[in-house]
Design a protein around this nucleic acid. Structure first.
Lengths: 218, 218
DNA sequence: TGTACATCAGTGAACGCGCGTTCACTGATGTAC
DNA sequence: TGTACATCAGTGAACGCGCGTTCACTGATGTAC
């Protein structure tokens, strides 16, 4: 599909108009289709309907484009988590479950972003703001963990940072092993979402939060 | 480094002798160095000191070689887990912790194998025995989980399969986020091993296995 | 409102490079007798 | 123990391909006056 150069719509010919955005969309399409490894600068240019030299006006090289995609991914990811957490409303434990679901939902809904963020091997400081965006996303989980920890009596309170790392790792593990359309993925007796929810419930109970919000479900 | 062709040692000249093995070692070196994406058939041949056509005598293509590496990785992985589990000796909970540590130890000690197994995007049925080897490795965790579940009273016993999936996912999440030399890895306030151990302890407590074997440590 | 001009964002041709793959070939090895 | 022969496991040259990158260029856009 070409996104420019058609004189038919009479809008643009020589100048693309918004090549930067078009390249990012192309990168997402290609990553989603062939994985982060099978995405080339030339391919993105072709898909955006411009010559192979044009992208250099907007990105230093392939990796810079990839890093920009990853940054945007983390921004959207953080936003999705933040909305799900919703400042702990209506109730911290319920909001916490919602955040976990939002994690998997993002991995499922945006596999290309997810791959760029976690599987492309991009250095976190290769792009200004990338580390920041990643930290912001993780920060949501961290704040949520702090709120959950605050529910516990002071003497049995675990470090919130540790808790957030556990949840981050479990979510990512489930997402990358089971929630993606990879060729290597395994069959499950339950949905990834249910698996995560069950895991988090057991974990929370282990912390002393007996029951959990939806312990009766399923 | 060339592994053949030197007349100096007087052993082999025209025939390599064990090219298949040499290619696999080369693949591991290259994957370890540049990631699963940055490994090419030609590179492996060069590293093994043979012409670029030679590998075709042993592998259909690059992916076949990669799949063979992954299979061997899963075999070693399964073996390492099995030895750590050691049939639940000296005590199931302790053996279970050992198995978790062995998981991370493998990811750390054999990053190239780990990458081929989990990050190369190899289809599990692209090579005979690959899925089998992967299933065997997971099977260790599954059996271990069954033994742990058996410690619980029948009425509060969770599905062992689910438990093993949780542990597999948490271990893999920690390994791929924190235990690898990736450019994108994050800083931690504790070692990945400690993080996993703490996570599993909380999880086990959530199942009703109060304390756990090493609850007093750290 | 026009016009001159600077700047921007593309083109397209060209280049070197390394990869994957095929091919006829040949040296080395193993085996039947 | 020798010898003839089949088979195996390499060579090296060749090819097409697509990628990354550079370059002088040019059409389009914006702005100062």
């Amino acid at each position: 599909m070409r996104w420019s150069g058609d004189k038919s719509d009479g809008r643009r010919s020589y100048h693309h108009g918004n090549l930067r955005e078009a390249l990012i969309r192309a990168a997402l399409d290609l990553i989603g289709e062939k994985g982060p490894a099978g995405f080339t600068f030339a391919d993105a240019a072709r898909m955006a309907g411009v010559s192979s030299a044009a992208p250099y006006r907007h990105f230093r090289d392939r990796d810079a484009l990839m890093a920009d995609v990853a940054r945007r991914g983390f921004e959207q990811f953080g936003k999705a988590l933040d909305e799900a957490w919703n400042d702990g409303r209506p109730e911290p434990l319920i909001a916490f479950e919602n955040t976990g679901r939002a994690f998997l939902a993002f991995a499922r809904r945006e596999p290309a972003y997810y791959a760029a963020m976690f599987e492309a091997g991009i250095a976190l400081d290769s792009e200004p703001g990338l580390r920041q965006a990643a930290d912001n996303a993780f920060g949501v989980l961290r704040r949520a963990s702090e709120a959950i920890c605050a529910l516990l009596p002071r003497e049995s309170r675990p470090p919130a940072l540790m808790m957030s790392l556990h949840v981050w790792a479990l979510s990512h593990g489930i997402a990358s092993l089971f929630a993606r359309a990879d060729a290597g993925r395994r069959r499950l007796p339950m949905s990834p979402e249910e698996l995560l929810e069950a895991g988090v419930l057991v974990y929370l109970r282990g912390l002393g939060l007996a029951g959990g919000p939806s312990a009766t479900r399923r």
